[in-house]
């Protein structure tokens, strides 16, 4: 390159740097702050993470799955509706999936074990255990389960909490969310919301 091309290149780089800084202000400061302003003003609770409260304290986010184990153990607590298996124990700081392929031997083994465990825990035949009960989600913090998985847990939960089965079944029906606008996504049951309602029911007894 001769001298003038070097000058040209230098000039272009200098303009490029200034352009990047200006666009950083526009797209990296003004834009996110404007969206935050609108979002916080119009949808404050959602913008902060859809936090749920019970007895006056925050107990989690509606959108983030939790584990429902017996305190201090890795065994499921029969009192609560259980969510999907999570390889990170529902840690929101370690999201992501198992990444195992559909024929992977490790996955085959874990599905088999989960199926036996869920069937025995809820006292239902293995054929009634739906796919979401024995597979990990994509986020490891899936807040939902399928209505079928909720259904097979009803009897066990009712027994453990000393509630009539019909009442728990009604609770599940009330907390089953259909597809958005009737066709988008899949029907699901939000486990935290369901368990919060369950807690209310138990405390009223």
């Amino acid at each position: 390159m001769d001298n003038s091309s070097w000058t040209n290149l230098g000039r272009t780089m200098w303009a490029a740097l200034r352009m990047l800084l200006v666009l950083t202000v526009v797209a990296g400061v003004v834009y996110p702050l404007a969206v935050t302003g609108i979002g916080q003003a119009a949808f404050h609770d959602k913008a902060d993470g859809s936090l749920m409260t019970a007895d006056g304290r925050e107990v989690g986010s509606k959108l983030i799955g939790q584990s429902w184990n017996l305190p201090g153990t890795d065994r499921p607590d029969p009192k609560w509706f259980q969510g999907r298996p999570s390889h990170s124990d529902c840690d929101p700081l370690a999201t992501g999936s198992s990444q195992l392929g559909a024929s992977d031997p490790t996955l085959v083994k874990s599905v088999k074990e989960a199926k036996e465990q869920v069937a025995a825990f809820n006292n239902v035949p293995e054929s009634e255990v739906p796919a979401d009960a024995v597979t990990g989600s994509a986020s490891a913090i899936d807040p939902d389960i399928s209505p079928q998985y909720a259904d097979i847990q009803v009897r066990r939960v009712a027994e453990a909490d000393g509630l009539p089965v019909a009442q728990v079944r009604k609770l599940v029906a009330e907390h089953t969310e259909g597809r958005t606008l009737g066709f988008m996504g899949e029907p699901h049951v939000n486990v935290l919301q369901l368990n919060l309602a369950l807690k209310d029911l138990v405390s009223k007894q």
């Binding site: 609108i38 959602k46 019970a54 107990v59």
Partner: peptide
């Protein structure tokens, strides 16, 4: 804005720790 209305978050807060109903800590 539509995504926030659906439930996507938009804040500049800190990692927020809650105690769940089972007594676990969870970081939001």
């Amino acid at each position: 804005v539509i995504l926030i209305a659906c439930g996507a978050i938009q804040n500049f807060g800190d990692i927020h720790t809650v105690t769940t109903l089972t007594g676990d800590k969870q970081a939001i």
